[in-house]
Structure formats: C-alpha cells, structure tokens
Design a protein around this nucleic acid. Sequence first.
DNA 1: ACTGTGACTGTAAACGCTTGCAGACTGTGT
DNA 2: ACACAGTCTGCAAGCGTTTACAGTCACAGT
Lengths: 335, 335
Amino acid sequence: MSIRKVAARAGVSTATVSRVFTQPQAVADETRRRVMTAAEELHYAPHPAASALARGRTCNLGIVVPDVSNSFSAVVTKAVDRQARREGYALFVAGSDEVVHDEETSARALAQQVDGLLLVSPRMPDDALLALADMTPIVMLNRLLDGIPAVLTNLYEATGHAVEHLHALGHRTVVYLAGPDGYANDVRLRGFRDACSRLGMEASELGPFAARFQAGVRAADLVLAASVTAVVAYNDEIAVGVVNRLSDRGIGVPADISVVGFDDTELAEMVTPRLTTVRIPAAMAGTAAVELLLDLVRGRDAGLGSPRELSAELVVRSSTGPARVARDTGQDPAP
Amino acid sequence: MSIRKVAARAGVSTATVSRVFTQPQAVADETRRRVMTAAEELHYAPHPAASALARGRTCNLGIVVPDVSNSFSAVVTKAVDRQARREGYALFVAGSDEVVHDEETSARALAQQVDGLLLVSPRMPDDALLALADMTPIVMLNRLLDGIPAVLTNLYEATGHAVEHLHALGHRTVVYLAGPDGYANDVRLRGFRDACSRLGMEASELGPFAARFQAGVRAADLVLAASVTAVVAYNDEIAVGVVNRLSDRGIGVPADISVVGFDDTELAEMVTPRLTTVRIPAAMAGTAAVELLLDLVRGRDAGLGSPRELSAELVVRSSTGPARVARDTGQDPAP
DNA sequence: ACTGTGACTGTAAACGCTTGCAGACTGTGT
DNA sequence: ACACAGTCTGCAAGCGTTTACAGTCACAGT
C-alpha cells in the first residue's frame, strides 16, 4: 500500500504517482488514469505522515478551547471543524478545562503537528502566546495582543446597550457577575462600568465565577444579599443558574429582578423565562478565524493589522422587565 | 532544530538523542543530561510526523460525532479528550452533522492519521464500518456490530423504568418521539414498546425528528393532536422543545402532559420544570471507550468479546406528574 | 590472560512521500 | 535540417526519526 507498489503496478515511477495525487494536471491523462486504477485496485491512500514530513506541512489545524462541553466553545468548534474540513484540513481539538498550565501544554503539543492553531479565549500569559506564535501561525478568539491576529466581538458597545436597556426599564442598581479573568471578562466589565457611570446607575460587581450553571446558582444568593434589581452575568450559563436559584427562592424573574446573559447560546431560548442576552456570533467567529488562519498559513499576511471585529447585539427576551417600584427599600425583595 | 543538530551539540549520535526521548533509561545518566541541555538550548522538540513515519504510529486518536455542538456529544468528546491526553494522545475531532456520507468520509480521512478511531452513534452501513475497522482499530459508542468493540448503555431497561414511572402516575396513553434512525433510537423504541405492551398502555410513535430543540418545538403540536397524556422523547433537547411549545400553547407540564427525556444533559436541570430523564453516563462512556480503544491499539485484544455495557437510570424530576383525570376526552386538553 | 556479560553508543538502513533537475519526446517556426 | 519551446516522465536526494545490529568498554568469573 505504498506509493512504490502503485508505481510498479501502473508501470511508472513513484514521482509520477505522487504527482497524480498532488498536481494531477502535471500528468498526462492516459498516465493519470493508469495510476488511478492501479491505486484503486490496491486500495492505496497516501500516507499523511510521510507527506507531512516531505512537504513540511501537515494539512491539520488545531483548536484549543477552555471547555469542550461549554455551549459557546462547542458552537465555535463546530464552525471551525466545518470550515477546516471544507478547506481540506483536519482538526485537532484540545480542552484546557480553564487550567492555564494545561492550556499552554496542549497548545505547544498541538503546535508541533499542525499548520496553524486557533486559541479560544486563551488565558496564558502574553509571552507564552508570543512564544507559541513563533512555533506556528496562530489566531486568537477573544483576546487582544499586539502582533497576533485575532477575531474579536465588539462587546463593549453591546454591553452598553444592555445597561441602557435596564436603565430604560427603570433599574438603578445593577450588579455584574464576573467570569474567569481575561480579555472576555475585561471588555464586558469595561462596557458595564462605563455605561453605568454614564447613566448614573449604581454599579457593583461580584465574582469571579466559573462560567457555568452551578456557579450561577451560587451567585444568585450573593445577588440577593446585594439588593439590586438587575443582574448582568458573564454568560448565559451563569445567568440561567441565577434565574433558577432565584425562582427556587421565590424571587420572580423579571418581576423582582431582571437578568441579562451573554452569548445567546441555544440555552437562552430554552429556559423560562427566555433569556435577554448579548448575542455573540460564535459560528461566524469560528469561520472567520479559520479563514484568517489559512490566510496566514498560505502566506498571505492578512489580518496582522487590526483584529477582525464582529458585531454583537443585545437580544431582548423575557428575563428583563420593568424595575419593581421600590417600596421596602433596603429590605429583601422577597415576597 | 532537528535531532542532528542536537546530536552534534551534545557530541553524540542521532540514535542516542532519539533514545533519550523515547527510552531514557537506555542512556547513561551523564549522556542523557548532556543531550537534554543541548536540546533545551536549541529549543528542540521531536518532529511528530517524522516519528510517526518511522515508528508506524502517530500517537493520535480520532473521534467522529454526529454533532459537535450537541450537548451529549460534547460531554463525550470532553471526556475522550481528557483521557486521551492523559494517555499521551492528541485528539482529532470531526462532526458529521448527521450526514452519513460526511461521516464516512471524515472517518476514512482520520483513519489514515490516527492509531485508533472512536465512532459515536455511527450511522454508516455495516460494511463501511467493517472496512474502516480494517484500516485502523475502532471502537463504537451506541452501535452494535459483530466484530467491532463497542461501549453501550443498557437503555432498554431504563426506558422500561420510564414507562413504568408514567404508568404508576396514571398515564395510559403515551407517545414516543423518535430521533434519527439508528441503534440509539432502536433500543429506546424497543424498550418503549415492550414496556407499554407489558403494562397495557396505549403506545404511539411520531417522528423521526432531528435530535434538536427546534424539532421538539415542532413535535409538540403533533403531540397535542395525538391526545396523549405523556411523552417520551428521544433526547433532552427534543423534550425541552416539546415542553416549551406546550407551555406557549398554555398546556401545563406536568399538569396536563408529562414529558420524559434522555441523556440527562446539563439542560435537564436548567429548564422549568426540571426534566425527568434517563441518565446516560456520557463522560464515563467516553473514558471507557478510550480505554478500550487503547487496549486494542496496544495489542491487548480486549473487548472483542461482548461489548462493554454501562447502566442508565431514570432520574425523576418535575416534568412528570400524575395524569390528569380524563374529563373532556378526545378534546384538546387546553385550559 | 581469557571469556562472558551487561551497559552503553554508533552506523546505517529504513519509513513513504515530494520535488529540483534533467532527459526524452513532440511539435513548431525558420 | 535545426533550434527552441513545451510537455511529460524518471532519477535521486532529501524530509526527521527509529531501531536492528554491531561494536566498544569495563568488569566479574575462572
């Protein structure tokens, strides 16, 4: 099943067989047909490792995500997988479980055997990123660092819209539930703070929380203790956790407290009440990131200028509503 | 940055350098240290493709799932990724988007460059599977085929428990919402039918539906038209879709209709009412599958006997309740 | 002194493919 | 007839590792 057998059977040299599979137009029709049938008869398929060794490229891409089973990551991964396959690349996936050390290790390991690497919300230090970028082309999602191409979403503005939305509904005290430290959290936080101060709202912050449902459940009680009427959560999962726990404690959403999430994962439409959330075009970001990455891989030095920005937007659903008229000020708003 | 440079710098042969990285104990301490420092100074890292070519194994595993962003698949993938990494393997992921042809293509493509392949709920024909198994070791999740090792969950029994549960609550008419054709659906269906006939319940079936939320939404109206008091859905996503749409139409769950899902994804705890569902130990299945696969890869001919069975169990939550006393029989049970 | 053993290292031939270079042809223009 | 270009093919040298085999050496046993 090596190229030699095929060559022998077709009565040509190995070079010709190789060319049939890599630059078919460089081979005469007749010869190509002979080679093809020989290859089929022998069930020949080129050996990727040998090819990678000889050409110096693997036709593989890699992606490192914080959590494989997180809905947002999963959607990105799916889009990346699609796009990569469409372009003839296979995809390595590695999850870091939010552990910075694992993230770096995985990334370095993959870097050896891919033509390019995609890092989703990487949390490793800047110099580690730069070192990685020296090994292989990389593109980041949701992280900004000079010299490394990235795909970002302009959450700043959309976060402002979320706060404005709450303000318009009469809310004056609002808390932000922080997610894991990093660019993604920073930009939300900036948007939140700036909008709150611009609108004269009383802003507070809690966290950081893990970007998961259970962390949201835990956060809910802290939220209640903070006597606010509105919550902006780092992502939908936390938001849903908050909503659930509040309901369990008899607090109505949005009757008593309004909740806003981020990501607009499928979840947002599945829960009760449906979640008001800032939509991040995850699939589009994945696709764009692959395209950027392949531009790099293929030598087009695109995107090294300013990072590609996608627009996020507030999706208003049912988890936000008019602020409750403050009666028992300073008290628990429980029924 | 090749092994030769390191060898030169450390004053040894390439063979020794190679041994330092693959069988350290075969090299004298002093020599090993010299090689290691030389390697570090040169930032040397072994070239996976070259190694793969020379040894005939890649130290990569692959997984093909129906849908990367489906919660169940994602959990399996995550577990597989963990376990694979722990064992020193990197992981390829490919999603088939439920398209049989893509599934086969992806699987074949990956087969070339992995030491073993994991197929989650594969839907390709038997002979395609056998052909694949000829190319590389494979292990399947949720599919049964003689001669190919697999990890299964004994849903049959647990499905029976779900039906019994509904029966005990007074339900007498129940509909099963089928998912995509295949082993996974078959075993649920068998469990459902057998239990219904055993308990003398009136069983009907609808579908097949795609294993997604929106399909569940669509299914809900069909369910209503079927005048049943209980629904068993192929998976949690469909179940949640049903619940949501029923609520929108003013039908109470479980007051008017009870709903059971499958998988016990995180979703089940996040929605209102919390979903009664058959728990499938996805993470455990992923881990077990990797272990089985690595046994094969390493030549231990384990598991070729009977497939490994994991146990599923019914988790009762709030989406199932006493059947409504039939008053307006044959009518829409809408309020 | 000699043989045997074990521990360590080097030599060199793979592994399967790609590709620069050159040779063999065919056809065209002069 | 000849030069020239163009098209197709083969030769052979890599690509960076691994590993059987053989060689060297120190040391123990006789």
